[in-house]
Design a protein around this nucleic acid. Structure first.
Lengths: 156, 156
DNA sequence: TTTGAAATTACAACTGT
DNA sequence: ACAGTTGTAATTTCAAA
């Protein structure tokens, strides 16, 4: 993981359809060398996968909310119960009074309410506290560059 | 946006490096037809970009926290101030007592503390309330399939 | 949908450090 | 050994019929 790897990651985060020739040019490497670097980053699990970013609203998930889920019991093995709710995009075990924080994308506030209902149905869940997002400033990949160089890269 | 489009999106979310021939086969289309469908999805902005998913820990951002940022003034034009902090992955304007919710990835809790310091330095910010994630159950793309068919797809 | 040329990737063998 | 370079065959893209 040197500076070249970080630049490769930044470039691929920006646009993963870039050809290896162009990718290599950006970091001062040949196409073959860039290819080999990226292959190793994948192999090591630094790059988990190549995927697409989708407009949530276009998929009928225009309402974003974060829900603090309180529980009486230990929730450490309940990952599957949360994953079974397709509106939940992320679920994290947290330190604090609530025990799980979930990121929900629903079509409407009515559907959000229905998600809360399904959350209550999970064993051990004793309460929920939902916070609706009014506007998203930005959502971007994990920044791979040091703060100094990161300012050169685009925010998105 | 019919069922075929949703299946195309699901397949590309799983692995965007798939060849159009294989992609078409998955949804019952020729390579050319699949290619054209995907081109239109990009053109319409449903697919925003092709990118890579990275292991945050490998980039020195193993600590995940959600921070509620309270403010005295209107924060609606402060997107840039938040974007200038590279440790912030997401920032949303929210309804509720806090006014902005940010998702932070830092190397250590010390660095997290430094992010809080930088948040306080933003004009109008009057307080922060950080919640540290102990474990991430999952983070996955926005699910494009209806709940019925979504269960067939992998959680990750 | 099929076709075919152009571009790209993946995999060599090779070179220097 | 290791990382990079160049060359090349196989694959894929992508526009046109």
């Amino acid at each position: 993981m040197d500076e070249v790897d970080r630049k490769l990651i930044a470039a691929l985060q920006r646009d993963a359809t870039i050809a290896y020739a162009a990718l290599g040019k950006e970091v001062g490497l040949s196409a073959g060398a860039a290819h080999e670097r990226v292959r190793k980053l994948r192999e090591r699990g630094v790059i988990r996968r190549t995927t697409i970013e989708v407009d949530p609203a276009a998929l009928g998930r225009g309402v974003l909310a974060f829900v603090m889920v309180e529980s009486t019991a230990w929730m450490g093995d309940s990952a599957d119960a949360f994953a079974a709710i397709p509106e939940i995009q992320e679920a994290h075990v947290i330190a604090g009074s609530a025990s799980v924080l979930v990121k929900v994308r629903a079509a409407t506030t009515e559907q959000l309410q229905d998600v809360l209902r399904r959350l209550y149905a999970i064993e051990g869940v004793s309460g929920t506290q939902a916070t609706v997002a009014l506007e998203t400033f930005f959502e971007r990949p994990v920044q791979p560059l040091s703060p100094t160089t990161a300012r050169k890269a685009a925010p998105g």
